[in-house]
Amino acid sequence: MSTSYLQRLVEVMDQLRSPGGCPWDAEQTHESLIKYLLEESYEFIDTVAESDRSGMREELGDVLLQVYFHSRIAQDHPTDPFSIEDVAKVITEKLISRHPHVFGDTKVSGSDEVVANWEEIKAAEKGRTSALDGVAISQPALSLINKLLYRAEKYGVEIDMPTYPESLPATSESVGSALLAVISWAHKNGIDPEDALRMQSKQIMREIAQQEAR
């Protein structure tokens, strides 16, 4: 019986990380591989934008490698090891539990209700009560701000935000132009826009925490 390539990848990673395998692979840690996970994810995004089917196939393989690599590293943990099978088990159970309209008796009217149910189930599973719970702080500042605004709105948290002239129609072009102008302004004045925006994200998080504490 032939072995699937998914199982073969498990075997290859095990050989690379085991004695007599590759010295570089054996030295890697979760921390040392983070940059590669980010790079491979961005490279896959580029192939999607270019509708490059061959590139998508290759870059998805690189992303999959990172999942298998981290899982193989996790097997060596002295007190809390886990394998790629454990990872697959967790995501499989999560997909089933968060799709009760497919695997249960829940009825939905459309994708908006699916998303709402997903968020409610997720919050209940993780015991989340704050708009800040589960927000990935390490993500780029722009996406972090967007996530914080989404969470604040969802949890009904009122926060003070700077406003833009309402007379200007909000389109992808006008918003992009405004963002470009701000980034250019920051660049000309020697200010890192990522750092500046991250400072603002911290202020938003403080404000959300203060509002929730009342």
Rank of each mutant, 00 (worst) to 15 (best):
8 R>V: 07
124 A>W: 01
111 S>F: 15
161 M>H: 03
12 V>G: 00
153 E>W: 12
200 Q>K: 09
93 E>S: 07
196 A>D: 08
199 M>H: 10
11 E>S: 11
14 D>R: 13
85 E>K: 01
26 A>V: 00
75 Q>Y: 01
209 A>Q: 13
22 C>G: 00
100 P>F: 10
159 I>W: 09
152 A>H: 05
188 K>M: 09
86 D>H: 12
177 S>A: 14
19 P>Y: 00
207 E>H: 07
186 A>E: 05
78 P>G: 11
98 R>D: 03
119 E>F: 13
30 H>R: 12
2 S>D: 13
149 L>V: 05
173 E>S: 05
150 Y>S: 14
29 T>L: 07
79 T>I: 11
134 G>W: 11
109 S>L: 08
57 R>W: 12
209 A>G: 01
153 E>K: 15
28 Q>V: 02
53 R>G: 07
132 L>T: 04
59 E>C: 05
38 L>W: 11
149 L>F: 10
172 S>V: 07
8 R>K: 14
179 L>F: 12
194 E>L: 03
137 I>F: 15
92 T>V: 04
183 I>W: 02
211 Q>V: 15
210 Q>E: 15
139 Q>V: 11
15 Q>D: 10
126 K>R: 14
149 L>T: 02
172 S>L: 10
154 K>D: 09
65 L>C: 02
11 E>V: 04
80 D>Y: 14
39 E>K: 15
180 L>V: 03
76 D>W: 10
152 A>F: 08
204 I>C: 03
186 A>R: 03
32 S>A: 12
150 Y>P: 00
